[in-house]
Design a protein around this nucleic acid. Structure first.
Ligand code: ZN
Ligand code: ZN
Ligand code: ZN
Ligand code: ZN
Lengths: 139, 139
DNA sequence: AACAACCTTATAGTAAGCTATAAGGTTGCA
DNA sequence: TGCAACCTTATAGCTTACTATAAGGTTGTT
């Protein structure tokens, strides 16, 4: 057991602890993703364990594919603005469908390009390189 | 048979023909993706069928997943700076591996998020929403 | 001659998420 | 006291691929 909720950290220490650049932390603050922390007499930001939790939330959400804007919404929900789980679910589902659409685009690209690369491997005459042909070909 | 190579077009006509905005065509010109076209006495750009071919090349390459910078390289190759087909192939392969890496990222996101969404569907109590739990959970 | 619909340039703004720079104040330690 | 290593703010720049705006010149038709 450590004395929780009493840790005091500078921005540099929070940065170190969460593997986030201090500049980025200030940026998140400006964007409203992190609350304005209290300050020391000399105007240094003071963080505690709650800040670590917040920042970790942001990093996790980013990994799962949420944008910073999405994350603001998620925080609003997490912070208990009387919403329902189904609302989060719907929100996550809409992000999920964006991810899937993006994947479909990439899959189409991957298919076309890999087939071209394979055909290209067959001969080394640039005159009939299938990649260039595909790009140049009329209609 | 139409009299090819003798077509004269304004930027608006080229834009129409290739479904590209005229501003975008000028932008490609500034970026060096399109050659500076000849001008009329009144300084209007004059295009011909070659310009259509060039623009089509650009649009196709974009669809396959090349960036505008990539396309400049491809054009250099297509314009015959004594390179070999294997060079194009290597280039296309490197782009392909970027696409695949991106897909792998998205796949991981998709997996995590869809599993969360499914679990979330099971109960509507926000207190134990698995999405929020995953984001907030320590370690 | 009037007018719309084109064309020209230069400049600045948009998206997202940082990252860099300048110019200065504070802390901690030898 | 000196100095490094922190901290502060404001401002600007980066990436990619456009997109918008302003202010003006040209073309073609009535
Ligand atoms: Zn992507
Ligand atoms: Zn080839
Ligand atoms: Zn991505
Ligand atoms: Zn839920």
């Amino acid at each position: 057991m450590e004395p929780k909720g009493r840790t005091r950290m500078t921005i540099g220490q929070l940065a170190e602890k969460t593997a986030t650049d201090a500049q980025t932390i200030r940026y998140y603050e400006r964007q409203g993703l992190l609350l304005d922390p209290p300050r020391t007499e000399s105007n240094y930001r003071v963080y505690d364990e709650n800040s670590v939790t917040r920042l970790t939330f942001i990093k996790r959400a980013k990994e799962i594919g949420f944008s910073l804007n999405d994350i603001k919404v998620l925080q609003g929900i997490a912070d208990g603005e009387v919403r329902q789980c189904s609302e989060i679910q719907a929100f996550a589902e809409s992000r999920l469908s964006k991810i899937r659409a993006h994947m479909a685009d990439l899959t189409a690209m991957e298919r076309t390009l890999s087939s071209l690369v394979n055909q290209c491997a067959l001969s080394d005459k640039i005159e009939d390189c299938p990649i260039l042909e595909t790009l140049t070909e009329r209609e």
